[in-house]
Design a protein around this nucleic acid. Structure first.
Lengths: 153, 153
DNA sequence: GCTTGACCTCAAGTTGACTTGAAGTTGTAG
DNA sequence: CTACAACTTCAAGTCAACTTGAGGTCAAGC
């Protein structure tokens, strides 16, 4: 079999060697052996890295991504969880579509302030109504505690 | 008019007061006045914040987002640039669709290792061929220098 | 008029995701 | 056999994006 040097992997994926070492360190990818000191990667790592890159694009942390695929591209999570992630991604896709449309609108609309433009507002109202509260971390102070309440505009 | 306290904005958007203050500090949003010491926000800020959140989801930095929508919903960037950003988002949408499908496949496919499953490989090959290299930062060391080369799997 | 809770500022700390640098090793081309 | 480019480790540094904490202010309700 043909193994890959870290430099080759880097060249083929656009991810720096230092980053690949970091990914290996945190258990996101793994090399199967060494040639002297040098890490040897299976070609499969290229797909894994692509998956990682896509996961990052989706806004997932490396930890979350690691949870999705595990070390060997094998899922660590139960099916249900994976479907929930997929749902989450689909939600994000819809948001991105709104963002893209909004951006194009902003680019072409001659209105002085878009916040007053009805087309613009229509684009966004849906989004605001469906509301955010994407809280991954918890609250602490008494003053800031009310954040988990739902969005209603 | 009804103005909003920072706490109300926080409750309605799911963004912490500390973060909102930070956003104001860097000029991403703005309050229109004070009630005593307290910032007063226009309801419109809710839409702005939704835009910011979507931009973040898309992986844009706060600086980039600020360029897209500016302080007052007015873009700082030229039309062309905005359309390019929209294109970028559309590209991301396509990637996310692949990721979502892949995730669902991973959830349901009974194969021991997905990297061997042809369906899985087909899903990803498309992605790998179109290749990553989403380099926002530049290279420095001689050893790591070859990264801008294109992806071919 | 006093209390209280929600706000304020400002500096320093934290986190995730890398990057950099120094100092050392090694496979391969000449 | 030697040179050297490509790797190695490990610790420290960087950057964006917040968060935390200490100490202070103030408006609304009792």
């Amino acid at each position: 079999m043909k193994f890959l040097d870290i430099g080759e992997v880097a060249a083929k994926t656009g991810i720096r060697p230092s980053t690949l070492r970091y990914y290996e360190e945190i258990g996101l990818i793994s090399s199967i052996s060494r040639h002297g000191l040098r890490r040897q990667f299976l070609p499969e790592v290229l797909m894994q890295i692509k998956l990682i890159a896509m996961g990052k694009t989706a806004g997932f942390s490396l930890e979350e991504i690691s949870g999705m695929f595990g070390k060997n591209g094998r899922p660590d999570l139960p099916r249900k969880m994976l479907h929930r992630k997929a749902d989450e991604i689909n939600r994000q896709i819809r948001e991105l579509a709104i963002l893209s449309n909004t951006l194009r609108h902003v680019a072409d609309c001659p209105a002085p302030s878009h916040l007053e433009c009805p087309k613009f507002r229509r684009l966004l109202n849906v989004a605001v109504k469906r509301g955010g509260a994407k809280n991954r971390k918890r609250e602490t102070t008494k003053a800031d505690k009310s954040l988990t309440t739902s969005v209603r505009y």
